[in-house]
């Protein structure tokens, strides 16, 4: 690499970081959406009457079965077709969020099943409604059990955010391509920098989740199948 290449590389870092910020925004949005919908789908699968549960299973099947890239196109161009004005960013959050909700629902469903029917029965026996039981007994346990498998999902969706570039979101991957297109010699170094960004974020995210797990650890609870992915 020449001095000019090095200079270009350094010049490019702020631009890359601003792109990375977009990835993080997508990540936040999609995780939140995936979490909310994922829990809902898992609860429906476990607790609701059969036709509704079947619908939830179908939902999961669809969003796990369709490739992310195809989902992105379906949501972005599909909604456009129906005259719904949607920005590439929003489309990315929705598409990746719904996809993640399918995977997250699987994690939560496994965790809810691991908590077991007896906990539900005990809660009902003191007079709680099913919703109260879910809120105060089932979910607090299921969410704790979900943290280890959930960190896999976190790492996976973090990386998926770069797919948003395909529908025109200017995030870190796209910015790296801009820089590469401007100076071909930077093809390898610029993507190394991007790779480092993601390695760092994955590390930081998993560290934070580990801290969260320790923070909410309950004596004797982890023995009950924590860490298994259902």
């Amino acid at each position: 690499m020449t001095a000019v290449d090095w200079q270009n590389l350094v010049q490019g870092v702020p631009s890359l970081l601003s792109g990375l910020l977009v990835n993080l925004e997508i990540l936040l949005g999609l995780i939140a959406l995936g979490f909310a919908v994922g829990i809902l789908v898992a609860l429906v699968q476990v607790y609701s009457p059969r036709p509704l549960a079947a619908l939830a299973v179908g939902y999961e099947w669809f969003f796990r079965g369709v490739p992310e890239m195809v989902l992105l196109m379906l949501i972005y161009f599909g909604l456009r077709q129906f005259k719904v004005r949607i920005t590439p960013f929003t489309a990315a959050v929705i598409a990746l969020g719904l996809r993640s909700s399918a995977y997250q629902s699987q994690i939560f469903r496994g965790a809810i099943q691991a908590v077991g029917r007896r906990q539900m029965m005990a809660a009902l026996s003191v007079g709680m409604t099913r919703l109260q039981a879910i809120r105060h007994v089932i979910l607090p346990q299921a969410l704790r059990l979900s943290i280890p498998p959930w960190s896999n999902e976190f790492s996976s969706v973090l990386k998926d955010t770069t797919l948003a570039s395909a529908i025109g979101v200017i995030e870190v991957f796209k910015k790296a391509r801009f820089i590469m297109g401007r100076n071909y010699a930077l093809a390898l170094p610029i993507f190394l920098v991007v790779a480092l960004f993601f390695l760092f974020l994955t590390y930081a995210g998993n560290w934070a989740l580990g801290a969260l797990e320790r923070r909410y650890r309950i004596p004797g609870f982890e023995a009950k199948g924590a860490g298994e992915r259902f």
Partner: peptide, 13 residues
């Protein structure tokens, strides 16, 4: 109606 289960079923968390 109180209910006492065979395997206790205390809320684990």
């Amino acid at each position: 109606i109180g209910f006492v289960f065979q395997d206790f079923n205390l809320f684990t968390h």
